[in-house]
Structures are given as C-alpha cells and as structure tokens.
Amino acid sequence: MNAIEFILAGMLAAATPFLLAALGEMVTERAGVLNLGVEGLMALGAVIAFIVVYHGGGHFLAFIAAGLSATLLSLVFAFVALGFRANQVATGLAIGILGQGLSALFGKTYESLTVKGLPKIAIPGLSDIPVIGGLFEQDIVVWLSLLATLAIWATFAFTKTGLVIRAVGENPKAAHAIGYPVITVRVAAIAFGGMMAGFAGAYASVIYTPLWADGMIAGRGWIAIALVVFGTWLTGRIFLGACLFGAVSLMSLAAQATGLDLPSQLLSSLPYIVTIIVLGIISADRRLLKLNGVASLGEPFER
C-alpha cells in the first residue's frame, strides 16, 4: 500500500471526529451561539463511551451514553450562557475545562486500557477499484456520519427548521417579533452541538483509536471550531475541511512510515500549524466571512 492509498483509505475515518463535532458546532453557531467548550464535550463523550464499551455495553449503547452525557454538559452551557446572559467565550472555556477535568476524573482507572473497534463495511464493487477502493471500505459510523452530513445540508437547504435556526442567528429580535421562540431554538441548537461533540469523542475513543488516554482528544475539538470558520458555516465546505484535516493527521503517520527524517513533534503539531495557516488565508477574505458569517454570533439575546 503506498502513501496515497493509505491516506485515501484512512482519511474518512480520521475525518469523522472533526466532521461530527464541526457540524454540531455549525448548527449551534448558525443559531447565533458560540460554544467554545467542544474540546471538553468531546473528552466527556470519549471517556463515557470508552467505559461503556470496556464493561461490555457495546458500541451502540456507548454512542447513546456519550451523546447523552455531552448533551447534558452542553445544557449546563445553555443554562449559564442563555439563562444568565453570560459571556459566551468565558462560559465555553469553563465548559471546556470542566469537561476535560471530568473526563480525566472518570477515566483515571482506565488509563492506557484498550477495547475492540468496529469492523469495516465494504461497498461491493466500488471497494475493488484500484487506488481509491479503500475509500469505500469504512465502518458503520463513517457511513452514518456521511448520511448525517447530507441530512444537515438538506435541513438548511430545504426545510423551515433550517430557516428558523438561521433567522434566530441572523436577527433574533426580528425572529422573536415574528413569534419564533429564540431561546428555545438556541437551547436546541446547543444541545444538538453537544450531542454531536459527544458522538465525535466516542468515535475517537472506541473506534478510531480504541484506547483511553487522558488528553486523547488533543485539540481536535478546537480544530473542529476552526473548521466551522474554514467552511464559512456551510455544510459542504466543512465536510471538505474535515477531510483535509483527516488527511493531514494521517500524513504525519505516513511520513513516519516512509522513513522521512522529521522530528515526530513537528509532525504531531502539523494539524495545529495547518489550522493556523488556513485560518489566516480564509479570514483574510473579509467579504467571504461577512457574507456567510452569523450576524448575532456570541451576542446574548435580550427582549
């Protein structure tokens, strides 16, 4: 298997944690709320999922538990940021610290233990194509994530739900005046973002690298938040961005395998450096951000 085949085969799986968390954050932000606690939500989901699988609960139950626990923590965010109109940046940071602390606390006795991942499901015919065949051999969660991506895209493209979320994010006062429940929509968007971050963490700890280590999310929650900016709040672009970061994180593995003599720390920091560079390139186009950005992002709603 050469490096390109290796990256193509693994890209979607590596991208899935980024994709799930970023799509959740996109929905939250579209409703006008900036939740910077994704890293902590993912960490909590990851440890809960790991504990469930380790004790024989199975992967399905693990994802349910991870989604629920991260949703609960995101509702704490909603309680403080919406209920008390707190600074969303500070609230998100607090949720991030709390989530990472809880994950370290719960995961203490599971440190460096491993579980079994999930088998891959191949699409007959397509998976036999040379070079790109690996793309069509993925585990069930990757396939479901792709479906979820389509569903979220369709929701914003075609449905009234999508329109209401956007209205609440663009101009909450007008949305309220028309009669839409701004706070309820925002709480739901926050909860959805929390659930997706929980799934993302679960995928990281029980499927992608099925082991528990404190700090294993390793900045992926933050990269997911950056992905929402890269993707300019658009589902399709966020999907492409997630694939890019999946490929970048595999590139460091591939580079080590091909015996490229680079310090491993440089390769480990590659995703962060790429994030900084891409963030600079995309943000420099101020019109693009203004055009697609969410007008009331981060501002508390007051009647």
Partner: peptide
C-alpha cells in the same frame, strides 16, 4: 493583518 480569530490562533499556538 489576516483578520483571524485570536482565540483559535492563540490556542493552536
């Protein structure tokens, strides 16, 4: 210069 969000850039750094 690049209009990038300082929260994300400083954390990545």
């Amino acid at each position: 210069r690049l209009n990038a969000n300082e929260i994300l850039v400083s954390l990545m750094l």
